[in-house]
């Protein structure tokens, strides 16, 4: 009797211990949905913050509405080498609700078979320069991740009156050139977080205090005429390198390629318009990609203000480079990005 009993009892005890130890596991199985959301939020946060997206060149944010399907994955990082540093153009495109619809966010950022709800938000440290949010109101019980980021913004070559002494010279053709040497700009010795890359960021040229550049000799004019803005390129690796004018629809206004404003009014690139105070040209990356430039090319933006007799004295070449005087670049802006998934 006692041997049978002991053997049976031992087996019973072992089985009981195993079953009892499984009880918490059984309960955990019912709880696992909340864990899942946090994992999805984490994954989404990593894709947004640590990945530049796909395709990389040309970058996904350059695709227009007709080519939205070519965007495989949305990431906001400047490059894969620089996690947590976001590119302002990517951020703007990402939070553009007229461009992306909820289905795009699900298929290009969140991934996964379940149609998750989401809320992405970004706030910069100063509270004003970036305050974006997209998605539905957040219910309790959502998965969540918060990432601290820095945002890279493009520089602006602001050519104000203080440069006048460098760029005023009596000359037969009043031509002002802003020169972008890609070989210098894209040199890998400058980290991706600080690089001026016209292929991904807009080139911004602003000439202010224009009266400083006017011909002072009597009768002193109050304005000048901006005839044309043209783009020229030179490829130094060619046998006989020389500047050639880039074929481009100069007389079509297309704000996805460039914007040109004179004294605050928009114009195309053949304005023939009077300039009293300032000229502002923003050349978008989409235009730069049309110019078929490589990492050795030199791009000229030529402002022609020719006039007989010359009213402006402006003449010279302004290098768009890493000199903080010629192109002041803003500091990286700290911010916080939140992802909520449910």
């Amino acid at each position: 009797m006692s041997l049978d009993f002991l053997v049976g009892f031992t087996i019973f005890m072992l089985a009981l211990i195993m079953v009892v130890s499984m009880v918490p596991g059984l309960l955990a199985g019912l709880e696992s949905s909340g864990i899942d959301y946090d994992a999805v939020a984490y994954r989404t946060g990593v894709i947004l913050v640590e990945d530049p997206g796909w395709p990389v060149y040309p970058p996904w944010e350059m695709n227009d509405l007709a080519h939205k399907d070519e965007i495989q994955r949305i990431g906001l990082a400047v490059s894969k080498e620089t996690p947590n540093i976001l590119l302002s153009t990517k951020v703007e495109r990402f939070f553009d609700n007229s461009f992306f619809d909820p289905e795009d966010y699900r298929s290009k950022v969140i991934f996964g078979d379940i149609p998750y709800s989401y809320n992405f938000s970004l706030l910069s440290e100063d509270g004003t320069s970036y305050n974006n949010r997209t998605g539905s109101p957040i219910p309790p019980g959502h998965g969540y991740i918060r990432r601290v980021v820095k945002i890279k913004e493009p520089g602006v070559a602001e050519i104000d009156g203080s440069f006048a002494s460098q760029y005023t010279a009596p000359s037969s053709n009043q031509e002002f050139i802003v020169r972008l040497d890609f070989g210098q700009l894209l040199n890998p010795s400058v980290g991706a977080a600080y690089r001026i890359d016209p292929r991904t960021e807009p080139v911004n040229v602003t000439i202010t205090g224009f009266d400083e550049y006017l011909n002072e000799t009597a009768p002193a004019p109050t304005n000048a005429t901006l005839r044309t803005v043209t783009f020229w390129k030179k490829d130094p690796t060619r046998p006989i390198p020389q500047f050639t004018k880039i074929p481009f629809s100069y007389s079509t206004t297309d704000s996805s390629l460039y914007t040109l404003t004179i004294d605050g009014n928009p114009y195309d690139l053949t304005p023939d318009a009077e300039v009293f105070d300032d000229i502002s040209l923003v050349l978008k990356p989409a235009a730069t990609s049309l110019f078929t430039l490589d990492q050795n090319s030199i791009l000229d933006i030529r402002f022609n203000l020719g006039d007989p007799p010359p009213r402006p004295n402006i003449f010279g070449i302004h290098d768009y480079d890493y000199n903080m005087t010629t192109v002041p670049r803003p500091d990286l802006k700290a911010g916080v990005l939140e992802v909520a998934i449910w």
Binding site: I35, N84, R146, V149, K150, R329
Partner: peptide, 24 residues
């Protein structure tokens, strides 16, 4: 582990961003 993971990620981010100079 979930709050731990969130805190650890946040803390690493903060240290990394504090270690990133604002200008080159």
């Amino acid at each position: 582990h979930i709050p731990d993971m969130q805190l650890e990620q946040l803390g690493s981010d903060v240290l990394a961003m504090m270690d990133t100079p604002d200008t080159n």
